[in-house]
Computed example of a mutant assay.
Amino acid sequence: MAKTTPACPGLPADPRLSGFPPVLPGNARILLLGSFPGVASLAQGQYYAHPRNQFWRLLGACLGCDLASLPYAQRVAEVARRRVGIWDVVAECRRVGSLDSAVTEASVNPLARYLREHAPALERIGFNGGLSWKLGRHLADHGYAVYRLPSSSPAAAMYSFEQKLARWRPLFEF
């Protein structure tokens, strides 16, 4: 019998989870790479769906628009219009909850190959948090400028919004 978690009787404790396809316009110049969607994002089928995650607010401040107030489809369209992509380093994994520290058996997306083929204008990659940085920083070896960003997650409370924004902004300064 499968090991179950007390919070969800009858469900496997560590099911194999699959992430989302990239939001990546062919003319993207900037890519934001997270680690893997959290529980709220997986449930809603949307990147950064948790209401306390600061991703959309941070990205909107960097782009000079209020992304957080837009419906998800409009957010994604506006980001793509501004030549910014969104994806995750991990394609599949096992994890209970939303913390990166709980990720096991991670399969990494074929980042370098995919980006060369689908986003030839890409110049800069921002890593949203420590796990994405750990698993993806090798992209610097492929000619991309890489930026380690403080996580937008509500679990990353060591930085204020303003401190995070100060670290995110240089990614968008050309």
Rank of each mutant, 00 (worst) to 15 (best):
M1A: 10
A2P: 15
K3G: 03
K3M: 14
T4D: 10
T5K: 15
P6R: 14
C8P: 10
P9W: 05
G10E: 06
L11F: 15
L11Y: 08
P12T: 15
R16E: 09
L17D: 07
L17I: 08
G19L: 05
G19V: 00
P22N: 10
V23R: 02
G26Q: 11
N27Q: 13
A28S: 09
A28F: 13
A28V: 00
L32D: 06
G34E: 04
A40R: 15
L42M: 15
L42W: 00
L42A: 04
A43W: 04
Y47C: 03
Y47A: 01
Y48Q: 07
H50D: 15
H50W: 03
P51W: 13
R52M: 04
R52W: 07
R52T: 12
Q54P: 06
R57C: 06
L59C: 07
G60V: 02
G60T: 01
G60M: 03
A61L: 03
A61E: 15
A61R: 10
C62S: 00
L63R: 11
L63D: 08
D66G: 04
L67H: 06
L67V: 09
L67P: 03
A68H: 01
L70F: 03
P71T: 12
A73G: 00
A73Y: 08
A73E: 04
Q74N: 12
Q74H: 14
R75L: 04
V76W: 05
A77F: 09
A77T: 00
E78W: 05
V84L: 03
V84E: 02
I86S: 02
I86A: 01
V89T: 11
V90K: 03
V90I: 11
C93F: 04
C93Y: 10
R94Q: 12
R94I: 07
R94A: 03
R94S: 08
G97V: 14
L99S: 15
L99E: 13
L99G: 12
T104D: 06
T104K: 13
A106K: 13
A106E: 04
V108Y: 11
V108H: 10
A112Q: 08
L115F: 07
R116M: 00
R116W: 14
A119W: 11
A119P: 03
P120L: 05
A121M: 14
E123D: 14
N128C: 12
N128Y: 02
G129I: 07
L131M: 13
L131E: 04
W133H: 01
K134G: 03
R137F: 09
H138F: 14
A140G: 10
D141R: 12
H142R: 13
H142Q: 14
G143C: 02
G143K: 14
G143I: 13
Y144F: 15
Y147K: 11
L149S: 05
P150N: 08
S151W: 12
S151R: 06
S153Q: 11
S153F: 12
P154C: 10
A155D: 14
A155P: 06
A156G: 02
M158V: 14
M158L: 09
Y159S: 08
K164Y: 02
A166E: 05
W168M: 02
P170Y: 06
L171W: 01
F172Y: 06
F174K: 15
